[in-house]
Computed example of a mutant assay.
Amino acid sequence: MSAIGKGFVKCLCCYLIILLAVTLLAPVFTPYDPLSVGLMNILQPPTAAHLFGTDQLGRDVFARLLYGGRVSLAVGGAAMLLSVSFGTGYGVISGFLGGMADRIMMRVLDALLSIPSILLMIGIQVFIPASFLSVVIVIGMTSWMPIARLIRTEILSLKGEIFIQASVVVGASPAQLLIRHLLPQSLPTIIVMSITGVSHAILSEATLSFFGIGIPPHEPSWGNMLMGAQSYVLSGAWWIALFPGLLITFTVLAVTFLGDVLQDRFALPQLKRSGKW
C-alpha cells in the first residue's frame, strides 16, 4: 500500500475513533440535555451558545447529535453482530453440508434475496412497536442473506483445497474441520462483511426513523433528527437537517471505504499466492 493509501486509512480510522469517543463522552463536550425543551429558543441558528443551533422544540442540535450518535452507532454495531452471526452460521451449514440440503437452503436464500431489504424492513417494522431492540432485530434479520451467500461460496471453495482433503484422510471430524480450518480461512471475509454491515445498519436505522417507524421519536438518533427537520428546512432552518445528514454521510463513507481497503489488503496475499498479482 502506498504512503497516500496508508495516510487515507489512518484518517478514516482517526475519524471513526474520534466520533466514537466524542459520542461516548457526550456529557463532557456539551452541557445541554438532548431531551430538554426550550420554548424560548426555538429554531435558533448556530451561535456561540448553541454551536449547531436549536431545533423546532428549542433543543440543542449539537447535544442531540452526540447523544443520537450513541444510538445510531449502537444500532449499527448490534445489528451487524446479529446479521453476521446468523449469516455466517447459515452459510457455513449450507456450504459444509452440500448436496440436497445446500440446494434447498440456497433456494430459500434466493427467495429472500428477491425481496428488497428496505421493503422487507418497513413491512415488518410497521407491525411491531418501535424500540431500539426491535430496530436492531429487524435490520439484523433482513440483512444477513448476502453474508450467507458469500460465506457459503467461501466454504465450498475451501472444501476443495488439498489441506482440507488431507485433514479428512487423516481422520479429522467435521467439528475439527470447521473450527481449525474452514472458519479461520473465512475470517477475512467475515471481518470485511462485518465492517460494511455497520454502514448498512446505520443507513437502515436512519431510513426507518425518517419514516417514523424506527427509534421512538423522543429518543435522539440521527435518523430521528432528519425526520423532525423535514417540515422546517424549507422555511429556512437548514441547520436542523444539515449536521445529522453530514454525520450520516461521512460515517457511512468512512466505514465503507475502510471495508474496501481491508478487502483489498486481505485479497492481496491470496492473489500473490495464486500468481494473479
Results as ranks from 00 to 15, higher is better:
172 A>C: 14
167 S>L: 06
163 F>S: 03
157 S>G: 15
180 R>E: 10
160 G>E: 14
165 Q>H: 10
142 T>N: 00
156 L>M: 14
160 G>R: 06
136 V>A: 07
145 M>L: 11
126 V>A: 00
156 L>H: 06
169 V>M: 12
146 P>G: 07
142 T>L: 01
174 P>E: 10
142 T>Y: 00
172 A>Q: 12
132 F>Q: 03
185 Q>G: 06
175 A>H: 12
183 L>Q: 05
179 I>Q: 13
147 I>E: 09
142 T>F: 00
147 I>S: 10
175 A>E: 11
146 P>N: 06
148 A>T: 01
178 L>S: 06
162 I>C: 11
146 P>C: 05
181 H>L: 05
154 E>W: 13
164 I>G: 07
175 A>R: 15
181 H>S: 06
147 I>A: 03
184 P>M: 12
159 K>S: 08
167 S>D: 02
184 P>E: 06
154 E>Q: 15
186 S>G: 09
187 L>M: 14
180 R>Q: 14
162 I>S: 15
152 R>K: 11
150 L>A: 15
130 A>M: 13
141 M>L: 12
135 V>K: 03
184 P>Y: 03
166 A>D: 04
144 W>D: 07
157 S>H: 14
137 I>A: 00
141 M>P: 00
129 P>E: 07
186 S>I: 10
176 Q>W: 13
127 F>R: 07
166 A>Y: 12
151 I>Y: 02
168 V>P: 01
162 I>W: 13
156 L>N: 08
134 S>Q: 07
173 S>E: 04
167 S>K: 02
181 H>D: 11
139 I>Y: 01
154 E>T: 13
150 L>F: 15
155 I>Q: 07
178 L>N: 06
181 H>E: 12
167 S>A: 15
143 S>T: 10
181 H>V: 07
125 Q>M: 12
142 T>P: 02
178 L>M: 14
174 P>G: 12
137 I>E: 03
158 L>T: 05
123 G>H: 03
124 I>A: 02
138 V>F: 05
180 R>I: 08
165 Q>F: 07
182 L>V: 09
149 R>V: 02
168 V>S: 07
158 L>V: 08
154 E>Y: 11
177 L>I: 09
152 R>C: 00
185 Q>I: 01
170 V>W: 10
123 G>Y: 04
130 A>S: 15
176 Q>M: 14
161 E>Y: 11
159 K>A: 09
162 I>V: 13
152 R>V: 00
156 L>A: 08
150 L>G: 09
130 A>T: 13
144 W>A: 01
134 S>D: 03
183 L>E: 09
132 F>K: 02
178 L>K: 09
131 S>H: 08
171 G>D: 01
130 A>E: 13
136 V>F: 02
171 G>H: 06
163 F>K: 02
180 R>M: 04
125 Q>G: 02
135 V>F: 08
159 K>W: 10
178 L>A: 04
174 P>Q: 08
183 L>Y: 12
129 P>F: 06
162 I>G: 13
173 S>V: 04
148 A>G: 09
125 Q>C: 00
124 I>V: 11
172 A>I: 12
169 V>D: 03
160 G>Y: 05
142 T>M: 00
178 L>P: 01
134 S>F: 07
129 P>C: 03
134 S>V: 00
130 A>R: 10
134 S>K: 01
160 G>P: 00
157 S>L: 14
